[in-house]
Amino acid sequence: MTIALYIAVMAGVTYLIRMLPFAFFTKKIESTFVKSLLYYMPYAVLSAMTIPAVFYSTGNLATAIIGTAVAFVLAYFDLPLIVVALAAAGSVFVAGIFI
C-alpha cells in the first residue's frame, strides 16, 4: 500500500514534468539564440551523462576504459548504434577475463 503510494508520486511528478511543457508550449521559437540553444542541448545532455559516468559503469576502471575506447573508434567510423553498444559490452567482457 505505502509502496504503491510512493510509486504513484514518482510516476505523477515525472509525467507532469514531461507533459506540461510538451503539451502546452506550442509557440514557434523565433530567436536564433534560443533555437541554437535547443539545437545543442541533446549533444550536451548526452555528453554530460556519459562522461565520466561511463568509466564507473562496469565496476572496473580498466575494462571501462577499454570498452569506451572501442565505442569511440567504432562510432567514429559511423557504425550502427547497436553494433557500437554491443561491441563495447563485448570488449568489456573479454577484457574482464584478463584483468
Partner: peptide, 9 residues
C-alpha cells in the same frame, strides 16, 4: 556499459 556505448554512438 551498453547504454553509454549507445550515447557515444
Amino acid at each position: 556499459i551498453v547504454i553509454y556505448g549507445m550515447f557515444i554512438a
